[in-house]
Amino acid sequence: MNWLCEFMTSSIGKKLEVALFGFFLCMFLVVHLGGNLFLWAPAVGGDPGHWFNLYANTLESQFFITFAELGLAAVFLVHIAVTLWVQWENWKARPIGYTTTAWAGGRTISSASTIYTGVILLIFLIVHVRAMRFEERFGGQLYSHVLHELTGTPAAVFYLVCMAALGLHLSHGVQAAARTFGIDHPKFTPIIEKLGLAFAIVMAGSFGAIAVWGGWFAGGKP
């Protein structure tokens, strides 16, 4: 198994791990967004939270949910830990910097900020998981709990900033992950780049819309 250890700790190997686990996280985002969309499902019997609560309670009552949560935590952990390792090496690789820096045109705002948007998302993750998963949740009325957490300008702004960071993070991350896996072709790369950007916009936009809705429009409802 020596080869596996070498592979996992090599420069490209680490980037492959970041990319692979980043891909898993993208999958998770899709599922998460799918679940969140129940927030906007039509009210049943005057209860706007009917579908969302049903979905949430069904999901949480599955026997595998703990494993899934632990698995998800592990995915996050690997993605973050390996990235930090890689970043630490990157900083170490240039102990004395330039007095003047000017970029040559390769860097974009999203590529240059990936590590920082990543840190923002890490903070978001902690706040979000603590708020949504570990706080008292009105006894199964998760819909109300979500609204409670989202309502108000501070919460909305916080969520919006973090979702902007998500968009930036993804707009570099998706296409970079594809390249890390060696997927690069004159025909398909432009498509992948556009799909990556589209994914980033859809994710950041959808979650952002939920934050706007929750922050300023859905508030006050039961």
């Binding site: 420069s11 970029w103 860097r107 970079a176």
Partner: peptide
């Protein structure tokens, strides 16, 4: 690629500054 790590170079994060 094994040596690139040993020589103390950083890792690629697709910033594309090299290409530019």
């Amino acid at each position: 690629t094994a040596l690139m790590k040993a020589e103390g170079f950083g890792n690629c994060s697709w910033e594309r500054e090299c290409e530019a």
